[in-house]
Design a protein around this nucleic acid. Structure first.
Length: 435
RNA sequence: GCCCUGGUAGUGUAGCGUGGCCUAUCAUACGGGACUGUCACUCCCGUGACUCGGGUUCAAAUCCCGACCAGGGCGCCA
């Protein structure tokens, strides 16, 4: 008999024999009456066992089966107003496919609290909780929305190497790995490769992939293994064209989630609103002025501290803006490939801020070979290490720009998750390598 | 890397300031029992813990030192 999911059964199927399967979520014993709540991907199903009407064997199995055991049940659908879904199953057969050990290391029904550490140690059980798995159903919609949107805008999806040689954009630390007789590293971003793609004539590319950062940070906001949506596009005027792409992408994702995730969003105490558009584009200098007026001094030329970034978020939210760009960062604090502004102190760069946190970072890139070599040297890096990257700029490179969007950060901010680790199935941080 | 806070049954917690009355609280889970409409069912009985190592003291869950682990903030970083 074909298995049915709980949400495929309706009260009108009264009298039909069905097979269901799932985990024993809870059990309520009332002497001669026993309720078994079975959880599957579609939710919970009530299996009702009146002692008089089911076989002794079936009743005994249901009475003694441990919570979270996997069961398959064949029974009759009974329309019943007193049951949670308007129907219940009266079983004629119960197979215990896998017994769960007791007691459980955490409570999937969520009756008692549990710390994040315990949850992550027992992540598989944790993910059985509907509120937890909902995050990943939403994440799925997020990435699918991003793909659909970008494709509709003429971007093609690419895959660049995760294993890279020494040459990199500098900045963040890399994880070294052993690659036969050579030294190699895990990719921190697809930056150099996606730029090289601009010299191929593909014009617009995107990549959704995992990257590795060997930073020893330890916050609710950082991971050592992250997922990013990276885009790069050619023939732009300046960074404003890139910001247009970011804005449309972010809006497309939020709209898709609002449309398709209402069920998954139920457990979150949050209403996802479409941010006010167009997103303001305030320059670094303007941001500094706003902060100065609010009593927060940021030394000119320095990056915004966490405190000032959060403060700026508050100031913007007061004006009704939950999402906004900060543009024209000092060239000095940006990577070598960032296009300088007409005012050489600044750069054609931007961050997209959401709730006072950086979620996207992007810029117009340098497409001129000589300027690029000059900037590499100015950053104290050796052009020799960027040989293959630089080759791509020698034989015709269009003006281009791009950005990277942190998927976990977006998900965390959108859903109001208290810790970025919640947005990853199996987070990797400074201390955690298991599970 | 720095600063702050914490570590008590399977899980989540109370107790710690002012050491003794802790034979360590409560909830939930777990085992047993009663119960035919539960939906955090209810009720009765039971099992189960002071992170580790030193120290102070007549006496340490409680005070001190160290280690390990965790939570938060900052830095670095995106």
């Amino acid at each position: 008999m074909e298995r049915k999911y709980s949400d495929e059964i309706i009260p009108d199927m009264d009298g039909r024999k069905v097979k269901i399967a799932g985990w024993v979520h809870d059990r309520r014993k009332l002497g001669g009456l026993l309720f078994l709540l079975v959880r599957d991907r579609g939710g919970l199903i009530q299996v009702t066992l009146p002692k008089k009407y089911v076989s002794e064997d079936v009743f005994e199995k249901a009475r003694t089966v441990s919570k979270e055991s996997v069961v398959a049940i064949v029974g009759e659908v009974k329309k019943e107003e007193r049951a949670p879904r308007g129907y219940e199953i009266i079983p004629e057969k119960i197979d215990i496919l896998s017994k769960a050990a007791a007691p459980l290391p955490l409570d999937p029904t969520g009756k008692v609290g549990v710390t994040l550490d315990t949850r992550l140690d027992n992540r598989v059980l944790d993910l059985r909780r509907p509120n937890v798995s909902a995050i990943f159903k939403i994440r799925d919609v997020m990435l699918s929305a991003a793909r659909n949107h970008l494709r509709s805008k003429g971007f093609i999806e690419i895959q660049t190497p995760r294993i890279i040689s020494t040459s990199s954009e500098g900045g963040t630390e890399l994880f070294p790995i052993s690659y036969f007789e050579k030294e190699a590293f895990l990719a921190q971003s697809p930056q150099l490769y996606k730029q090289m793609m601009m010299a191929t004539g593909l014009d617009r590319v995107f990549e959704i992939a995992t990257y590795f950062r060997a930073e020893e940070h330890d916050t609710i906001w950082h991971l050592n293994e992250i997922t990013a949506i990276d885009c790069e596009l050619s023939f732009i005027e300046d960074e404003n064209d890139v910001m247009d792409v970011v804005e449309e992408l972010v809006l497309a994702i939020i709209r898709d989630i609002r449309e398709n995730c209402s069920e998954h969003l139920e457990g979150f105490n949050i209403e996802i609103k479409e941010p006010k558009t167009p997103f303001p584009r305030i320059t670094y200098e303007e941001a500094l002025e706003m902060l100065d007026e609010a009593g927060l001094k940021v030394p000119f030329g320095e990056d915004l501290s966490t405190e000032s970034e959060k403060k700026l978020g508050e100031l913007m939210l007061e004006k009704g803006w939950s999402m906004y760009f900060v543009t024209k960062f000092p060239l000095r604090i940006k990577p070598f490939y960032t296009m300088p502004d007409r005012d050489p102190r600044f750069s054609n760069s931007f961050d997209l801020e959401f709730k006072g946190r950086e979620m996207v970072s992007g810029s117009q890139r340098i497409h001129d070979y000589d300027l690029l070599v000059k900037m590499i040297k100015e950053k104290g890096l050796n052009p020799q290490g960027f040989k293959t990257y630089l080759e791509a700029f020698k034989y015709g490179m269009p003006p281009h720009g791009g950005f990277g969007l942190g998927v976990e950060r977006f998900l965390m901010l959108l859903l109001g998750l208290p810790n970025i680790r919640e947005a990853v199935l199996f987070p990797r941080d400074r201390k955690r390598l298991e599970p």
